[in-house]
């Protein structure tokens, strides 16, 4: 049993099963079996998933529909956002 997505514990077999159900894109694999949904948001496993799709469907890697990239770049806590907002507010106050 080969683990492909370490953040979410997704095996190669699970990914192949998703492809057998009709998935052809990295986004579909993410949503169906959670490969790529972990803390690293697929930075580690995306390439491996693409390789498996390419191998199983016999399509060149370049033809695989690209995944959507979304913020944040790395996990960010609500408290950090709140302190950033407070800092901005103070700054704006000083300007006035």
């Amino acid at each position: 049993m080969k683990i492909i997505c370490r953040c979410q514990d997704v095996t190669e077999d699970e990914i192949i099963a998703a492809i057998r159900q009709g998935a052809t894109t990295i986004d579909e694999i993410r949503r169906l079996v959670r490969a790529g949904m972990g803390s690293c948001q697929g930075r580690t496993c995306r390439r491996l998933v693409a390789q498996i799709i390419s191998r199983e469907l016999k399509t060149p890697p370049a033809e695989i529909y690209p995944p959507t990239f979304r913020p944040p770049n790395r996990p960010v806590a609500f408290e950090l956002i709140m302190s950033e907002l407070k800092r901005q507010e103070l700054e704006d106050g000083e300007k006035k």
């Binding site: 949904m37 972990g38 979304r70 913020p71 944040p72 996990p75 960010v76 609500f78 956002i81 709140m82």
Partner: peptide, 27 residues
């Protein structure tokens, strides 16, 4: 970005004790 800021404000207002939660993805 506006959504991330706004959501953080609204959520921590309703759940002040859960401000350590970390966002991994927006869509």
């Amino acid at each position: 970005m506006k959504f991330m800021y706004e959501m953080a404000q609204r959520f921590t207002m309703l759940f002040p004790k859960l401000d350590k939660l970390r966002i991994v993805r927006q869509w």
